[in-house]
Design a protein around this nucleic acid. Structure first.
Length: 949
DNA sequence: AAGGTCACG
DNA sequence: GACGTACGTGACCTTG
């Protein structure tokens, strides 16, 4: 809620460097790399960053770069930019340094494949303008002059102007009119007529800038000028206009800026703050920019670089060379000094921290609570960090128990919250968390909404999902990240509070000790953020982090707080019935076995079945234990072993009772009367969510008896549950990604995909061939092996191989997809989804065959499973705003089960909400990805989760 | 803490 | 000739 106006500066980095190259002397850095243009670029950024808080200066700033030479314009006109000469030898090595320079200023650097910098600039400018911001485009590119002008925003006119830093010249409407003779919105028409030799845009031969602007000014538009050409008096110009019409029209398309690109980062993320000096100093020194280094101030003259700060970025033996050669050095940080932390015990001290946090616009926050369950936890204290070792702990509810004779001095909790709320809700101050979903929920329950946030755990996941060093976990928890990236061992929670029976609540920890622990967590979170966040742009994690996972955090937090109602009485009744049946079965099993034993012990059961009763069956695994899983027991039952059937039934019922009917009753939150799961955003390497405490993503559905449990998930009175499922989403994505015409066609026609597969494979659809086809379809998604398929279909591996061959033959594309996927994963070390989510496979080149093949199967599956996860996440992010826009604020999103979303809504809203939900889900890939297959969504409603299917 | 089993997509 | 045999999860039970 800043009072000053937001002003976004968009720097056209690519065009700048060309001009700087020609204007500046050919400098080289100490290593001999040419850096003349980079120097010019660096000084320009310096000036811009210095203007922060100046009247016309930026509050937000980003650099936009061209990613590669091809763009969608080449699809329209292959010759587009085709006559560009190769950049000079001594300019080429400077391109990557532009990124480094930008990074050194801790500024966002944006580039997208298939899009030109101009398009991104146009899209960002329009987005900012829509939100009432002013925009300055730092460029001299005439194409961009089309954007100049103003529109009415929420707080007065929002204007876009341009700044040519080399000429120190600002361009607004009059300047554009002076140059083109027409207002900015007609500049595109002029450009279409005159063409552009640099970009190889044809225009109309023989028409230059003068004639073009005169024509457009006269006729009011390109179309009008072209339309009226036949009526003109006979002249060379008339002929040219008539003959060149097609060229002009195509040129018009080429010069049109794409203003609706998906924005890789939100504009809020471009907040300009004080530039951290360390990374900048390192950069300036590396390239010998000594005069700038001096201006930066003393103390950074010869930085001793901290070593070993970023093991994840180092090349490891056996790892794939995936990191760019030109890595930014991690910023230096002093060692953790816990004695520097402050315990905040008075309002005055707290106010000081709040003022400093506001000025810094970036603060790491951590909450300390009485419980690990965010839905039960009481706030005990809050810690803040504004820099390395610059952290505090604010105790709020210490010594509430009897341990202290006297409560330690601390600010009363409600008073502190009252002071902190504006900071936490201030959209110009970014709050950094480690696993922020937890803190968000705790704070929300204390009436303190928090926004905007960053989350180091989610950043780590976007960068390093699946990456793990041998033996050492690849997890994303604070302790692991701290160890991995900071080479520091943080105080562990159990060191402060103990474990097991002797554990004490955090509120009973003495303040000095609590401060060391809690402030350290905020300090580390701040350090991790400064270290990890810049890697996103460099390593290609920004898209997924900024557009998918980061905005998802508050959405999922909201779902967790909603919870879902379960019918306790119904579960209790089921538990009772199951218990009775389990008892009966147990008796029969003991009778059949001729002795009593623990049915739930696979070891005892195996001995009874195979040793005592003499059924046939093999040992398995290193433990030398008999296997007694379903497939074994099914086989025995089919061969006429009655005890096997009894054990199967016993197992089913015990599972249902212990895991569901008993556990779910226990999971009902006493305050809300609902069940609140906790979703992990980093639980599955592929990008899927996972659900714990309780897991609501594995509630039975496949059997009638199990579905009774689903009947216990119910809406509040007057409401219904609505379940919306993607139908066959992974197969649809496989059809798209492997580009299989037959499958794409089948989905487009709404066919039953397994039946279609059966027809292709076996020539006819019967129950049997359809079932086999279904198995084979899944086998493909999971990375096929002849033995695996043989086992599932109960055929020989040779027959399975035949089927695989037939499949590849009938669906050309699949084999190529598999080969190409594996090739790139082997080469780069990671797979990627359609939306750019990476999953690392460190064992893909393992010498251990089993290990390697396991990685290969996972690598084939990950892009498909991960893309599906991306899509439903995008739908989730958009869902509630879309419903609100549709006038449906009472629809609540409760659960996600990988390809399904569950809602609770007033009965009266069903008719209006269903099409909105359907549309948001079906269109969730757009506009980033246009799929060749439709995404089918099936919706059901009812008085229970079961009935909604 | 590990292994076996089984619930889901 | 070995590896051991479909991808991704989490919870509960027994046993060491």
């Amino acid at each position: 809620m800043g009072t000053e106006r937001n002003h976004l500066y968009l720097v056209d980095g690519s065009s700048y460097i060309f001009r700087a190259y020609h204007r500046l002397p050919p400098l080289t850095d100490p290593e001999g790399t040419p850096v003349g243009a980079v120097y010019g670029y660096t000084t320009m950024l310096w000036k811009l960053a210095e203007d922060l808080d100046a009247a016309e200066g930026p509050t937000h700033l980003a650099v936009i770069l061209d990613k590669d030479s091809k763009s969608f314009r080449n699809d329209i006109y292959p010759e587009y930019k085709a006559n560009r000469p190769e950049p000079p030898e001594d300019l080429r090595p400077q391109f990557p340094l532009i990124r480094d320079a930008t990074r050194a200023f801790s500024l966002p650097c944006i580039e997208e494949a298939g899009l030109e910098a101009d398009d991104l600039i146009a899209s960002y400018a329009r987005e900012a303008q829509r939100q009432g911001w002013d925009v300055t485009i730092v460029s001299s590119d005439k194409d961009l002059m089309q954007l100049v002008g103003e529109v009415d925003g929420p707080n007065g006119p929002a204007r876009i102007d341009m700044l040519d830093t080399m000429k120190s010249q600002r361009l607004y409407i009059p300047e554009v009119e002076a140059k083109f003779g027409v207002p900015p919105e007609l500049v595109g028409d002029v450009l279409a007529l005159m063409g552009d030799s640099v970009d190889n845009i044809p225009g109309i031969f023989g028409i230059g800038p003068k004639t073009a602007s005169k024509l457009i000014a006269e006729h009011g538009s390109l179309t009008a000028a072209l339309d009226q050409a036949p009526e003109m008096k006979k002249s060379k110009l008339k002929e040219r206009l008539i003959e060149g019409r097609a060229d002009a029209e195509m040129s018009r398309v080429l010069v049109t800026l794409k203003e609706d690109c998906e924005l890789p980062q939100p504009i809020e993320a471009m907040k300009l703050g004080k530039v951290p000096p360390e990374p900048l100093a390192a950069f300036l020194e590396k390239h010998g920019f000594t005069s700038l280094l001096r201006r930066l101030g003393n103390g950074h003259g010869s930085p001793e670089r901290a070593n070993n700060l970023d093991p994840a970025g180092e090349k490891r033996a056996g790892d794939n060379g995936t990191d760019e050669g030109n890595r930014q050095q991690p910023p230096e940080m002093p060692a953790v000094d816990r004695s520097a932390y402050e315990t905040v015990q008075t309002m005055e001290a707290l106010e000081k921290w709040i003022v400093r946090a506001k000025a810094a616009r970036l603060v790491a926050v951590d909450t300390e609570t009485s419980s690990l369950d965010a839905m039960q936890a009481d706030l005990v204290g809050i810690s803040l960090a504004l820099g390395a070792n610059d952290a505090c702990y604010i105790p709020l509810a210490h010594g509430s128990g009897d341990m202290f004779a006297e409560k330690p001095q601390q600010i009363e909790r409600e008073a502190a919250l009252k002071a902190l709320r504006p900071l936490l809700a201030d959209d110009s101050v970014t709050k950094i968390f480690q696993n922020g979903k937890y803190d968000l929920n705790v704070l929300a329950r204390h009436g303190a909404p928090v926004s905007p946030i960053e989350d180091t755990m989610i950043v780590s996941f976007a960068l390093d999902a699946g990456r793990s060093q041998d033996g050492i976990g690849g997890g994303h928890g604070m302790d692991e990240l701290c160890q991995r990236h900071l080479a520091h061992t943080a105080i562990a929670y159990k060191d402060v509070c103990g474990t097991g029976k002797k554990a004490i609540p955090f509120g009973e920890v003495p303040l000095d000790r609590a401060t060391e622990y809690a402030a350290e967590d905020a300090d580390i979170t701040w350090r991790l953020y400064t270290l990890l966040k810049p890697r996103l742009a460099v390593e290609g994690g920004s898209r997924i982090y900024e557009r998918v996972d980061r905005p998802l955090i508050p959405v999922v937090a909201g779902m967790e707080r909603e919870g879902i109602k379960v019918d306790r009485a119904r579960l209790a009744k089921l538990s009772e019935e199951f218990a009775r049946e389990i008892g009966r079965l147990e008796g029969e099993i003991h009778e059949a076995a001729g002795q009593e034993f623990t049915v739930g012990s696979p070891k005892q059961l195996g001995d009874i079945l195979f040793d005592k009763l003499g059924y046939k069956g093999g040992r398995k695994g290193k433990s030398g234990q008999y296997s007694t899983d379903v497939s074994v027991l099914e086989k025995l039952a089919a061969e006429g072993a009655p005890i096997a059937r009894l054990v199967l039934e016993w197992r089913q019922l015990s599972k249902l009772k212990s895991t569901y009917t008993d556990a779910l009753q226990a999971a009902i939150n006493p305050q809300t009367g609902r069940v609140h799961t906790s979703y992990s955003l980093v639980g599955a390497q592929t990008g899927r969510l996972s659900s714990t405490d309780p897991n609501l993503q594995n509630i039975p559905v496949r059997t009638a008896i199990g579905r009774q449990i689903r009947e216990a998930f119910v809406p509040e009175d007057g409401n219904v549950l609505l379940a919306a499922d993607y139908s066959q989403i992974e197969l649809r994505l496989a059809a798209h990604m492997a580009d299989v015409d037959t499958l794409k066609q089948a989905f487009a026609n709404g066919e039953d995909i397994h039946s279609r597969t059966a027809t292709e494979m076996f020539g006819e659809v019967t129950r049997d061939t359809r079932a086999r086809a279904k198995t084979i379809n899944f086998a493909i998604l999971y990375g096929i092996s002849r033995w695996g398929l043989a086992g599932r279909l109960e055929v020989t591996p040779e027959e399975a191989q035949d089927m695989i061959d037939t499949y590849f033959q009938r669906f050309p594309g699949i084999q190529r997809y598999i080969a190409e996927t594996l090739e790139t994963v082997r080469e780069r070390g990671y797979s990627e989804t359609l939306f750019g989510r990476k999953t690392w496979f460190p064992r893909i080149n393992s010498k251990n065959q089993a290990e390697r093949q396991g990685s290969e199967r996972a690598a084939i599956n990950a892009p498909i499973q991960g893309t599906s996860a991306d899509i439903i996440k995008r739908a989730m992010v958009r869902m509630l705003p879309a419903l609100r826009d549709a006038g449906l604020p009472d629809v609540r999103m409760l659960l996600q089960v990988h390809d399904e979303l569950v809602f609770e809504l007033p009965e009266a809203d069903v008719a209006a909400a269903s099409p909105v939900i359907e549309r948001v889900m079906a269109e969730a890939a757009l506009p980033a990805v246009r799929l060749d297959v439709p995404l089918g969504v099936e919706i059901g409603t009812g008085a229970s989760w079961d009935a909604a299917h």
